[in-house]
Amino acid sequence: MNTLDSTMISSFAPTGKLRVGINLGNPILANENPQTHELYGITIDIAHEIGKRLSLPVKLTPFKTAGNTVDAVKSGDIDLVFVAIDPVRGADISYTPPYIQIEGAYMVKTDSPIHENDQVDALSNEIVVGKGSAYDLYLSREIKNATLLRAASSQAVVDDFMSGKGNVAAGVKQQLESDAKRYEGLRMLPGRFMVINQAIGIPKARPQYEQTTTYLSDLITQLKQSGFVAKSMHEHKIEGAKVAE
């Protein structure tokens, strides 16, 4: 496996700490204990493993949305993030291969005439999606006829939907299903409208970011092959996602 010399480590983590942005907008990736505010999840496990291998202390900074997390890495306030691979973000962020894959799904009211994913992109439909999320970026490219209504975050999608906005909700299948438990009269559309590859991202503005990306890519491959990622998913009871190939 490739290694990082002291110069590259200084470029990667210029403050002497590995500052990691944690996206709390996706419960498959990370969560926060409401009493202790301790962060936990697969991304936290991987972040600590990277810090351990580089002998760097890890500073975790939580963000409510993926968009805020990406903004922080673009501004240089964060050294590393865990976000969905997306070509728009890729202009500023260098990605590793994915470590897990997550499904994006649609939800509608029980009495909705929509029963299949391919019925969603119609002029009469309005899709509620979390602003700046991977689903927002994907649907902004792919939806040709329906209108997108952006909620403040992925967690706010179902509440906005139930308050009367739109007639379709879009997001992480597990997030939608979890939020829907607070309401009645909702159903998921079968299948998925997209598969999201979650990866590590670092800022392209840093010197020698290519070498750092190579190191992190090798590390992610090793963590997948060794069973580290699968074990973390099992320990955190993650469902609806799989270890990326």
Rank of each mutant, 00 (worst) to 15 (best):
R141F: 00
F63T: 02
A170S: 11
H234P: 00
V158G: 03
Y135D: 09
S10V: 02
V129E: 04
S217A: 15
P62D: 05
K181V: 02
S153R: 14
E239A: 08
A91F: 11
S6D: 12
I200S: 03
A199C: 07
I100G: 05
I220S: 10
E142I: 01
F228V: 10
T96Y: 06
L186M: 12
K181C: 00
K242E: 13
S124Q: 11
A91E: 14
G104N: 12
V195S: 09
T36C: 00
V81A: 02
S94W: 01
S55M: 05
T43H: 02
G90N: 15
V20Y: 08
L123F: 04
M233V: 00
Y183N: 06
A13D: 03
E49W: 00
R19Y: 02
A199L: 06
R192P: 00
K237H: 13
F228S: 09
I78E: 02
S11C: 14
V168G: 08
I143G: 01
H234Y: 10
G164F: 04
M194C: 11
T214F: 09
V83F: 02
K109Y: 12
L223A: 06
V58R: 12
N117Q: 11
A105N: 14
V129K: 06
K173R: 15
T69F: 01
K52Y: 08
A199W: 06
N23W: 04
Q225E: 15
A30G: 04
I42K: 03
I93P: 01
S124N: 03
A241G: 09
I46D: 06
S226N: 14
T7H: 11
H37K: 14
A169P: 02
S55C: 03
R206P: 00
G67V: 00
Q155A: 15
S232H: 09
D5Q: 13
I196W: 01
I100V: 13
S163R: 13
G25L: 06
I114H: 02
V128T: 08
N26S: 13
V81R: 07
P27F: 07
M8R: 15
T214Q: 14
I143T: 10
R206N: 14
K74E: 13
G41F: 01
V73D: 01
P207A: 15
V129S: 05
F12G: 08
R89L: 05
S232Y: 07
P87I: 05
T110N: 10
G240H: 11
G21K: 07
M233I: 01
G166T: 06
P34Y: 02
K237T: 01
V128R: 05
N117W: 03
D45G: 00
Q35W: 00
D111W: 02
D179K: 14
V172R: 01
G164R: 08
I93Q: 06
E116V: 01
S10Y: 06
D92R: 12
E184A: 10
N167M: 04
K204R: 15
A13H: 03
N167Y: 06
Q174F: 07
M1S: 15
F63G: 01
R192F: 14
A84N: 05
Y138I: 15
N31S: 14
E235K: 12
I102V: 15
Q225D: 15
Q119P: 00
G171D: 08
L219S: 09
I9C: 05
I78W: 02
A230Y: 06
D71L: 12
G76F: 08
K74T: 07
G130S: 10
E49R: 12
M194H: 08
A169N: 07
F12S: 09
Y138L: 13
I44F: 00
